[in-house]
Computed example of a mutant assay.
Amino acid sequence: MNATVTSAIGEHGNTSTVAQIEAGAVQVSATLPKKSTRRRSTISPGVQAVVAPLVGLAFLVIVWELIALNNSQFPTPLVTLKEAIKLFADPFYRTGPNDQGVGWNILASLKRVALGFGMAAVVGIPLGFVIGRFQFVSSMFGPIISLLKPVSPLAWLPIGLLVFKSADPAAIWSIFICSIWPMVINTAVGVQRVPQDYMNVARVLNLSEWKIITKILFPSVLPYMLTGVRLAIGTAWLVIVAAEMLTGGVGIGFWVWDEWNNLNVPHIIIAIVVIGVVGLILEQLLVALAKAFTYGEVSS
């Protein structure tokens, strides 16, 4: 391009002509499509969607095998797989209060999560609407939320034990207090981001507060609210595992701790996989719910 400009100067000797040439070069350069820095794969998208996860799992298994080779106490993937087959052959056996199948432990944990998470949704979502709707309430609860939100989930467990005098309600209390904040914050943010034009129309039409909430705020806030629910369910599932390790009883967290006391490392690894799978299923269910009730694309 510089050679072309130089040639134009030699032939015409006119700076205005040179300026026109340079301007044209810039315009042509701007209209050319930009090349992506990411190299396109020659594999079809359908094959890639299957092959890529399998390669990732194979990499994980290889790393796992290398760790097991360097540590005799760490079980190999094959040993863990054999134990998993035995374990899930009868997941709902029951021979005593502290000797139950993994299925009963998962159900017990899910029951606690459902109770704590459900109560958090009943309290947190309406509170988020009120905080987002009224500036005075937002200023009143803002410092409280900022103070309590960063507190570790396990720090709330002794308070629950002190108040409820029982391990099971204390675990549910820990789930409630830790999963309520994402729902409150996201719902409040959604209410505050409703376009002011909508509220002006509601004021002109003299709509009641109930109609404003149900006809204007709720449809607009729904994507934010469902995002808060997704974050909250992940927090609830994390909290219950840690709480059950300390409180005992039946539950996936207690099962992990009990297997550690028995030095049954393969069962601990199986429990980790089960916890991850159950958490993934819960999140995907909420993603499907969000896609069903929102028009925009919901990323997983």
Rank of each mutant, 00 (worst) to 15 (best):
V191P: 07
I106R: 06
R39Q: 08
V256W: 05
T95V: 10
S16I: 13
F136Y: 12
F92A: 05
T17K: 09
A188M: 09
N70Q: 13
S16L: 14
L32A: 14
V189I: 12
T187S: 03
G249Y: 10
G24R: 09
R230G: 02
V163P: 02
A243K: 09
M1E: 11
V298H: 03
P143H: 07
L60G: 03
F88K: 05
I185T: 08
S16Q: 14
N2R: 14
T235D: 01
L110T: 07
V151T: 06
I212C: 04
A243N: 02
E259L: 10
I268C: 04
P77W: 00
L205Q: 08
P33C: 06
K149L: 14
Y198W: 15
A155G: 00
I212R: 13
L263N: 10
Q192D: 02
L148P: 02
V287L: 03
I172Q: 01
N264M: 07
W210H: 11
I159S: 01
V163C: 04
V130H: 08
V123D: 00
L289S: 05
G96V: 13
S72V: 14
V229S: 01
E209S: 12
L207V: 12
A243P: 08
A19Q: 15
V18D: 02
V26E: 09
W181T: 08
N262A: 12
V102Y: 12
G128A: 04
V137Q: 02
T42I: 15
G190W: 11
Q100I: 15
I145L: 08
V204A: 07
I233W: 04
F88P: 03
S138C: 02
P195D: 09
N14L: 11
G296L: 12
N262D: 02
A155E: 02
A3W: 10
N186D: 02
G142Y: 07
S166W: 09
R94C: 04
G296Y: 07
L32T: 13
R38C: 03
W260E: 07
G276I: 10
G116Q: 06
G234I: 10
V256H: 04
L226W: 08
V55L: 15
V287G: 02
E283M: 13
L285T: 06
F134R: 08
I240Y: 07
S300G: 04
W255A: 14
G279F: 13
I272A: 11
L161I: 15
E259R: 15
P53Q: 03
V55K: 11
Q135H: 13
Q27T: 15
F74L: 09
G249L: 03
I9T: 09
Y224E: 00
W257P: 00
F129P: 00
G276K: 12
P91V: 13
V50E: 00
V265Q: 06
E244A: 08
A288E: 04
L66E: 01
I252E: 01
S299F: 13
S152G: 09
L205A: 11
Q192F: 06
P223W: 08
L286I: 14
V61M: 11
F176D: 00
I272Q: 03
K35Y: 07
A167D: 05
S299D: 08
T4R: 13
I185H: 04
I252S: 01
I252A: 01
F293P: 03
I216L: 11
F218G: 01
S16C: 07
